[in-house]
Design a protein around this nucleic acid. Sequence first.
DNA 1: CCCTGTGGAGAACGCACGTTCTCCGCCTGC
DNA 2: GCAGGCGGAGAACGTGCGTTCTCCACAGGG
Lengths: 183, 183
Amino acid sequence: MDSSVARERALDAAEELFYGRGVQAVGMDDVRSASGVSLKRLYQLFPAKERLVEAYLERRDTRWREQLAAYVEERHGARERILAVYDWLGRWFDEPGFRGCAWINAYGELGAMSTPVAERVRAHKRAFREYLDSLAAEAGLPAAVGGQLFLLAEGAMVTAGITGSAKPANEAREAARLLVRAA
Amino acid sequence: MDSSVARERALDAAEELFYGRGVQAVGMDDVRSASGVSLKRLYQLFPAKERLVEAYLERRDTRWREQLAAYVEERHGARERILAVYDWLGRWFDEPGFRGCAWINAYGELGAMSTPVAERVRAHKRAFREYLDSLAAEAGLPAAVGGQLFLLAEGAMVTAGITGSAKPANEAREAARLLVRAA
DNA sequence: CCCTGTGGAGAACGCACGTTCTCCGCCTGC
DNA sequence: GCAGGCGGAGAACGTGCGTTCTCCACAGGG
């Protein structure tokens, strides 16, 4: 098996397991049996579990933001695009297996013990925040609005994760609509 | 040492350690040496670590909500009280050792593996949500506003925890002010 | 003075898991 | 056909930790 193929398979398995059960509840052996990549190979590709966790967060980060951006770009109108963010969140929340925000969960689990992981979580949130800032700027809204939209999105993610409901996306969307209108 | 004293000391130590480092990073032996309560006693009081975690979350829940309510009750005017919630959050975020919301962190860490812990997190968030609902009702605001205020507060907590800044409290307060005015 | 029970200190046990090692089959180049 | 090395399976190792057990000091009642 090609090395890059093994890497993808390992990351596929790691993502599903880490996200679904939490990082600490998943052993390297679980990743091995779910991916079919031998332990030896796993440790060649990722010299420690922490590296695998970082790679998981990084790959998921780019995919997550790409999918969000692709969904948003389909909408026309700067304000419509802002609201599209919450529509996309609502779809995400409704997906089977949704268990909250992978980065918030990872931060709760490892943020205190692993600075690399904490740093990746911060980088992801910073990027998302900047994306919302850019959407707000395109809509000609004051700079402060980006931060408010961000807080609504974060609150929706964490609440949807804990309650298992997609409703927070609608609540956040409605709040965003009012904020954009009022600003 | 009296049994109830031992229980309090154990919970004091557990709270500081669990909150500061995460639950899984703290061993029962750490709780023992930090509290001065022997392992035997610890296991008499809390037959398993999970019970200690539950007790930690429960005691912190009542204290957290009492302190919030006490702070809010000092303000006059229904809308002022709503904004006081975010002022209180800002003070909390600025406290030394602040590491985000204990329940969100615990959910990220244990939510997938421990239903009792997940249930306590849900109960805490439900109670906080209902508290905001009651504040919104007293201000004569539409029922939907409570949920929006809740999402802002959750977003602020999680963002303050990850970034280590108290600024999200101000951003959330400003957003809440606009939402209350617009509603 | 002994017997009993309570509680503390810390060793011991069992298990899970991150990481490494051993063994062996198989493929490739001669 | 064969030497050498690459890779897989899984055992082995070390450690950490939840939980229990052992041993002992000591207080109180006969």
